[in-house]
Structures are given as structure tokens and as C-alpha cells.
């Protein structure tokens, strides 16, 4: 039986005193990739940031269990060092901190210079490594930079917030390949140790990355769980209005 990577139990979250998530429950096993659908402003990013431990997301109820350990009291850096990594949709610019410095910092001394250069080349970041992180980056460059950092960090649970947004059609194939590398998709299912939770708006990423389970997050809670392609097909055909019918 596969090891449980992440368990979200009865989770409720508020931001600046405003309730955003409630009654969220799901489980991701090791080696599985799950996908989150939902309209803007319904709590998808809040869920990922809460799992990551960002301080402004206050858990008011429930538990987050990562590999049998309740991580609610842990700060972000400890969660990262335990094996949780996240690609942000709109990461901040940090002036003076070079992209190479960030990739190196993510590796925390585990990777040799040669291995880090391989990551930089694989993510097509060679021309960006001496630039301030995220400064003047295009949408695709931001995504590739985020994935380069995750490749150096090697987390076991990978949270991806809209990895395809702002990415052109040429780059999306590369992004898909990099995500598959991160999630060990080339390995047989039984050997995969890493898990993913991916937010997608368009579903384009599903053309490149296989996922086992899809969820629809509406009004702060998961209202539907099933085959991700089937859910996407319904959303494309009938919109989220159809999903709303399931809860009314």
C-alpha cells in the first residue's frame, strides 16, 4: 500500500479575519498527482499557501498532516526542509538576489556546481542566472525559474500554482517536461516517491502531465472529486455552473 504523503482534514482557513476555506478534506498518496480546478477567488491559492505555511493564512480548524506528522505549528522554512516545495503563480522580485543565488540556496549544498548548471540548462535559464530573481521576467521565464528552484530543492510534495499561466505554446511543452521530471513520471508508478498538487485554470497542463485525481474547489470547499479529464471536460462544456448544481 502506498505511503500517505498529505492528509488534509476538516481544514478551515481565514485571511485577515475573512474566512476563505472550510471543510476541506482530501488525501494524496506518494507518487500521485492531483489537480485543483475552480474559478478565481474561490480559495485554490489559499489552500496551497496554507499547506506551505505562509503566515497570513490562518488555520482556524482542522489538520495538515505531511508524512504522518502534523505540520500546522511549523513555519514555512521547516516545512520546506521537511520536503514541501511550491511554485508560485506570481513570485516577488527580490532586487540584488540573482537567479543563480536562489537556485543554489534551494539546493542547500546538496548539489554540485555541475548539477546546478545542468538544472539551469534544462530549464533554459542560462541567460537569466545573473539577473535579479523575477525582475522583468516574462510569464514563461517565471515558471521556468520556479521549476529550476524546485529541481534544486527536490521536495517530495510539489505544489504548483497555475504552472501554465502566461506561458506560450512552445514553452508549455518544456514546462510539462520539467514537471514530469520533478514528479518522477518516467519511473513506473510503484517507484514514484514524489507527489504533486497542481492548480490549473485552463487544464492545458493535463496535455503534458498525467494526474490521478481532480477536485473542484468552489466557495472555499471541495465540491467534487473524480477523474481530472472528465471534470475538465465538464467545466469546458458547461462551466462551473454545472459544478454548482452538485451542491445545491
Amino acid at each position: 500500500m502506498a505511503e500517505t504523503m498529505l492528509e488534509i482534514k476538516d481544514l478551515a482557513v481565514e485571511v485577515a479575519g475573512r474566512p476563505i476555506l472550510h471543510d476541506v478534506n482530501f488525501t494524496i498518496n506518494a507518487g500521485e498527482t492531483h489537480v485543483l480546478f475552480g474559478p478565481n477567488g474561490n480559495g485554490k491559492t489559499t489552500l496551497l499557501m496554507t499547506i506551505m505555511g505562509a503566515p497570513r493564512y490562518k488555520v482556524t480548524r482542522g489538520r495538515i498532516i505531511f508524512r504522518d506528522q502534523d505540520i500546522l505549528s511549523l513555519p514555512m522554512d521547516e516545512r520546506a526542509r521537511l520536503g514541501i516545495g511550491m511554485s508560485m503563480q506570481r513570485p516577488p522580485v527580490v532586487r540584488g538576489v540573482k537567479t543563480r543565488d536562489m537556485v543554489t540556496a534551494c539546493a542547500r549544498g546538496r548539489e554540485s556546481d555541475e548539477e546546478l548548471n545542468t538544472i539551469v540548462q534544462a530549464t533554459n535559464l542560462t541567460e537569466l542566472v545573473e539577473r535579479d530573481i523575477n525582475y522583468g521576467f516574462s510569464g514563461g521565464e517565471i515558471k521556468r525559474s520556479e521549476l529550476a528552484q524546485l529541481l534544486a530543492q527536490k521536495p517530495d510534495l510539489i505544489l504548483l500554482d497555475e504552472p501554465e499561466s502566461g506561458v506560450d505554446l512552445v514553452n508549455i511543452a518544456l514546462i510539462g517536461r520539467l514537471i514530469n521530471d520533478l514528479l518522477q513520471k518516467k519511473q513506473p508508478i510503484r517507484d514514484r516517491k514524489r507527489s504533486g498538487l497542481v492548480i490549473t485554470h485552463t487544464g492545458h497542463i493535463l496535455d503534458y502531465v498525467d494526474a490521478r485525481t481532480g477536485y473542484v474547489l468552489l466557495d472555499g470547499t471541495i465540491i467534487c472529486e473524480g477523474d481530472p479529464h472528465e471534470i475538465l471536460k465538464t467545466i469546458v462544456k458547461k462551466g462551473y455552473q454545472e459544478c454548482r448544481k452538485c451542491v445545491t
Binding site: 505562509a54 522554512d77 526542509r81 513570485p91 516577488p92 538576489v97 536562489m102 542547500r108 530543492q153
Partner: peptide, 28 residues
């Protein structure tokens, strides 16, 4: 900016390490 510190902490740097990295970058 707190969001810059958190961004680096998200990568596994402690708060002190993140602050020092940002300050070093600022002075660069």
C-alpha cells in the same frame, strides 16, 4: 518586504538566512 523573506523561507532558508540574503543582494 515580508513577502520577499517568505519567498526565500519557502525555499528552506531560515528567517535569518533569508534576511541576510536579501540584505546582501541589496548591497550588491
Amino acid at each position: 518586504a515580508e513577502e520577499e523573506v517568505e519567498y526565500l523561507m519557502m525555499r528552506g532558508l531560515t528567517r535569518d538566512e533569508a534576511t541576510a540574503t536579501i540584505v546582501r543582494g541589496f548591497l550588491h
